[in-house]
Amino acid sequence: MPNVIQYIIRRLILVVVLMWIVSMVTFAIFFLIPSATGTSPAVLFAGKAPTPDTVKSVEIKFGLKDSIPVQYAHFVEGIFVGRHFDNGADKSYCPPPCLGFSFVNNQPVWNEITSDLPVTLSLAAGASIMWLVSGTAIGVLSALKRRSFFDRAAMGLALAGVSLPIYFTGLVLLDLISYNWQILPNVHYVGFTDNPLSWARNMLLPWISLTFLYAALYARLTRAGMLETMSEDYIRTARAKGLSESRVITRHALRAALTPIVTIFGLDLGQLLGGAILTEYTFGLIGIGHLSIDAISRQDLPVIMGVTLFAAFFIVFANLVVDVLYAFVDPRVRYS
């Protein structure tokens, strides 16, 4: 399938270009925010009431006196090969991928991100599987049993799902399930490798909350897609062949109706991997979302940049995966 390979290469080039643009825009934040607040990044790093000497040494250490293009070049260099920050006695090395040092914790931004990443990954992975399965299943059943009691109830619930914010459903779930009935523990993150069962028990409530939100949307989309597909001419053809209704639905209708869901799923998942701020705060989880809000409130510029780049990477990457998947799922994409 040389067409597919060509297609993937084209997409990969686009990803590189996109990431390059994102990195430049992100890097601009580094200079725009301090100039808007009237302080130098060095002052932000140097701590409370710094002496001019401290500020100067910080500027030298991080190369802040260089021209902006040179600083950008160093920044990009750091991502690929790592960086040495050198100020005489004060030497530090930031291994690749180096996104700079956190102002607040004085450690590489990459370490901050990777230490919070498992929480975000756990949240996204579990919730996305749950909402994808439940949302599409409910959508398909609703479409097949159109106007039935099930359909109306499911769509009513879906309306509630998309309307209610996560800090409402999340808190209600927490209050009922972990405080009142004490079925599940009060949420705190346990590493998957430490204790998988405890990990799942703790993540269950956040997953359910996110599932309620996303599955609602997916159920509605799937239902609409199924209804549209079931009225297509090729479904009539499938029936005219004498296929059983179950085969018509699974092999012919679902195949077409679920294709657009792939796109939306990829994008939603990509976005979620960049941090689920409200969910993390509601359940007191320290993930990428929490990290980014923390960094913003403390004006920790390197962390803000790092998280932004990181989240952007997931979204661009998710787009790539979706495009490639689409080429496999929809033959018409492959050859155009």
Partner: peptide, 17 residues
Amino acid sequence: QKMSMIFQDPLSSLHPY
């Protein structure tokens, strides 16, 4: 099998996938 049908618009009547 015993009776079959040819539809009007073959593009929309064949499954695109």
